[in-house]
């Protein structure tokens, strides 16, 4: 191995990784260290591996991933803040043979879009919802989100979230798992290679579930926001493990796909 040349490494037969064609060549707009880029990649890899990119419609939210359509090389719609599940409902009902997914942050899905999320899940729309939860409004500069932890600092809870004054964090994933219209509800992360593999498996399962025509598959990805949390990427991942995971434990919450 020591004598292998660059030319040999670049030979197609020695290739161990290639960026999926379903990601465009545009440089990601996300902060270095953020989990969005990884999650984008694995969603696109899943579509490519299932060979369903030509019949998939994605929906971008309002938030950091508002420009997801710049990076995902598939047909996409950009939704008003919080309304992605309403768009997805109509798209899937009007074109039941297509694969439809929303990609939403916690402000979008768990605050302004609570009604759309709950009702799409309760009706059992045959869609995939990918929910990136970083406990903060990243795009607008680090304000308190519905998912901000008790005591956690943000630009609108500068002394920490006081639950008596500001209310409690909302566990949307546990909430939607209670609804009859969800068939698969899971919480994952993308901060280590092994977690990336687990999340990819979960997202693959979620898209496979659309073939069952039985209801919503809901994949939460607990993510970091190193800029919003004002930490280095490494620090933020450690902080996430120590603080976010105890409150938002990883793993399947509901698997009802039989």
């Amino acid at each position: 191995m020591a004598n292998i040349t660059k030319e040999e490494i670049r030979k197609p037969e020695n290739l161990v990784y290639k960026k999926t064609d379903l990601l465009t060549d545009k440089a990601l707009s996300y902060c270095p260290g953020c989990g969005h880029g990884t999650t984008h990649r694995i969603v696109m890899e899943v579509l490519e591996e299932m060979d369903i990119q030509d019949k998939t419609i994605g929906i971008a939210p309002v938030g950091c991933s508002v420009l997801a359509y710049d990076f995902m090389n598939i047909d996409m719609q950009q939704a008003a803040h919080g309304r992605a599940p309403a768009l997805a409902t109509a798209i899937k009902r009007l074109m039941p043979e297509k694969f439809v997914f929303t990609y939403q942050g916690d402000g979008d899905l768990a605050a302004i879009g609570t009604a759309e999320t709950i009702h799409a899940c309760n009706r059992g729309e045959n869609i995939v919802i990918i929910f990136i939860n970083n406990g903060i409004y990243g795009m607008t500069g680090g304000q308190m989100a519905p998912t901000t932890l008790p005591g956690m600092k943000s630009s609108t809870s500068p002394y920490g979230r006081d639950t008596h004054l500001m209310g409690n964090p909302l566990k949307m994933t546990e909430l939607v798992a209670q609804l009859p219209g969800t068939i698969y509800v899971t919480r994952q992360s993308v901060h280590t290679p092994s977690n990336v593999r687990k999340t990819k498996k979960a997202i693959r399962k979620a898209f496979e579930n659309q073939k069952l025509n039985k209801g919503v598959s809901f994949v939460e990805v607990v993510s970091n926001c190193n800029s919003g949390w004002k930490m280095t990427p490494v620090q933020s991942n450690k902080w996430m493990e120590e603080n976010m995971f105890p409150f938002y434990p990883l793993g399947d919450i509901k698997v009802n796909t039989d």
Binding site: I57, I59, Q77, A79, A80, R83, A86, L87, A88, T89, A90, I91, L94, M95, A115, E116, H119
Partner: peptide, 15 residues
């Protein structure tokens, strides 16, 4: 809601 309804229209019209 009315809000969801008009956004469903958006999703459908976009198709």
């Amino acid at each position: 809601s009315e809000v969801a309804a008009i956004n469903m229209v958006y999703g459908g019209a976009a198709c």
